[in-house]
Design a protein around this nucleic acid. Structure first.
Length: 259
DNA sequence: ATGTCGATACTTTATCGA
């Protein structure tokens, strides 16, 4: 089973590119972030034509997540628990099953958090604390699950072209690293790092400053696996080639293969 | 080169968020 994550930076602007990649990469499940669309405007039919079932948790203008699945959804649950006042669409949880084996697939768009002296940074840290609580609850089931998405977290120096340039940024601050480490320490596996040890492999290149041409990237799109999912991990790759396409997203797809 | 992009609104240009 191939499960992918991709921040597409606007589904309206990216639908053709997304369809091209889906037809070529053939993931069984694709988690999309930053769809920047309300549910009603999401072009579900275009994805259904490729054989996908569609679950959307949208919002006007910003944020928004969706999950495409060739397998039918057993469950669909939008929204990260823990704050009833949070209206930002950043979390979508689904369950699919094949041959009697279920896998829970969670699509997240973790808050960016910049600028760090604004209310956005405490919101990011609070969101990460809520995610940690949710993951704790899910781990109690002792089942396979994948938390895939744009984490807006650069895990380590080796995941950024220039650590100095990112010092103090919300994606790279000590508090951010601490919260991410706490999440991993619950028992989750970073699929990419479980499969690769080479440094400077990125999933995002800024539109500005010729970042793609200079390979000034960061690795912020992750698939974290429960122990039961990690046991089934066969591989993990980054499809960086999409960044060179016409009208690219600033993020590229990352995917895993599970047995 | 602070060098881009997408969505929004009292739109055709400024603002926001990334």
């Amino acid at each position: 089973m191939k499960i992918a994550t991709w921040n597409i930076n606007g589904v309206k602007a990216r639908v053709e590119g997304a369809l091209t990649w889906l037809a070529q990469a053939q993931p069984d499940i694709a988690c999309l972030q930053e769809i920047k669309s309300v549910d009603e405007a999401f072009p579900s039919e275009r994805f259904e034509e490729l054989g996908y079932n569609v679950a959307v948790h949208g919002q006007k203008g910003f944020n928004g997540v969706a999950i495409l699945s060739k397998l039918p959804f057993d469950e669909v649950a939008p929204g990260l628990p823990g704050d009833g006042d949070d209206i930002q669409a950043r979390y979508l949880e689904t369950v699919v099953s094949t041959d009697g084996t279920a896998v829970r697939v969670i699509c997240i768009y973790l808050p960016n958090g910049n600028p760090v002296d604004s209310e956005k940074y405490p919101y990011k840290l609070a969101w990460m604390a809520r995610l940690e609580e949710q993951v704790k609850s899910l781990l109690a089931f002792e089942e396979a699950f994948v938390v895939a998405g744009d984490y807006n977290v650069i895990p380590a120096d080796e995941d950024v072209h220039d650590p100095e340039a990112w010092a103090g940024d919300a994606l790279f601050r000590p508090e951010t690293h601490a919260a991410y480490r706490q999440l991993l320490n619950l028992g989750l596996t970073d699929a990419y790092r479980a499969c690769h040890n080479e440094a400077h492999q990125y999933s995002f290149w800024d539109y500005q400053g010729g970042a793609w041409q200079k390979n000034n990237g960061i690795r912020i799109d992750h698939l974290l696996l429960s122990p039961q999912a990690a046991d089934r991990l066969k591989g993990c790759e980054i499809d960086s080639f999409t960044r060179g396409w016409e009208k690219p997203s600033d993020h590229v797809p990352v995917w895993i293969e599970l047995s």
